[in-house]
Design a protein around this nucleic acid. Sequence first.
DNA 1: ATGAAATTGAAATTCATTTTCAAAATATAA
DNA 2: TTATATTTTGAAAATGAATTTCAATTTCAT
Lengths: 138, 138
Amino acid sequence: MWEEILAKYFNEKGLKKSVKRKKFIDFFFKADKHFSVDELYEKLGKKVSRSTIYRTLKLLKECGLVIEQKFEEKNRRYEPLHLSYHHDHLICLKCGKIIEFNEKKIENIQKKVAEKYNFKMVFHKLEIYGYCEKCQKS
Amino acid sequence: MWEEILAKYFNEKGLKKSVKRKKFIDFFFKADKHFSVDELYEKLGKKVSRSTIYRTLKLLKECGLVIEQKFEEKNRRYEPLHLSYHHDHLICLKCGKIIEFNEKKIENIQKKVAEKYNFKMVFHKLEIYGYCEKCQKS
DNA sequence: ATGAAATTGAAATTCATTTTCAAAATATAA
DNA sequence: TTATATTTTGAAAATGAATTTCAATTTCAT
Ligand SMILES: [Mn+2]
Ligand SMILES: [Mn+2]
Ligand SMILES: [Zn+2]
Ligand SMILES: [Zn+2]
């Protein structure tokens, strides 16, 4: 799925499949988490430079395969979007664990709120911060 | 209300009431919007330095009179919280207009979602991005 | 294998925010 | 009021994540 989207995009833009890009993209889609650039840099054994990571993430953003998240941290996080299904996040303030959820009821009420203010919704973000099960105990 | 909280905080910390601080705080609470530091700097006729604005906002954050918002922009926005009532935001992608709303139903479902994942919610943020009434027409 | 075009990483740059520090303002005591 | 200790200020420097530059390297169609 994402391979096809990517192949199409690379073709259109005349991009080349380099060793570094492959290495990065393979890891990123396989791991399938919410990574910071630094984490990616470390996980790839520092074999792909931050410049290249930033640049490749930009490409993936452009073809809609990555969402850049600005959570309540200083640095951004990136998550692979295989199927572009929407979800929101529970984020642990202690360990950083991220739980994804999707609540149709909330989505529907959001639509009504937008309507009420004659506002044309394009996207939204809902983040719930607190403590995960583990961190409440310890 | 906020004057008392502030007075108490200043007293506890042994802070002094300077001309610049008064100027900034008076403007900020009277204007009552979601400002960036640059906007505040301009609105105050560049008579209060950015350093002092950042520093004073930090004080106000510490006594809970200001919320620092990280919207989908590079710079942060600050809003005075007179009564500390919670609300969420509709944000126009074209003109930057911010509409506040509070939907009890959403808040309740959020609590249920947190419970479902055994997550102890501390705070949340819900931002709906799109186009305001005016910007849809033009 | 050749050569044009794309990609790379290190270093430089950007830009919002924070920190430093010497001068100025403020509060308290004399 | 004046002296004195403490806090506050703004300019400039520092920080740090993200972006850009550029010369060297890699890719790929021929
Ligand atoms: Mn996610
Ligand atoms: Mn608000
Ligand atoms: Zn946790
Ligand atoms: Zn608008």
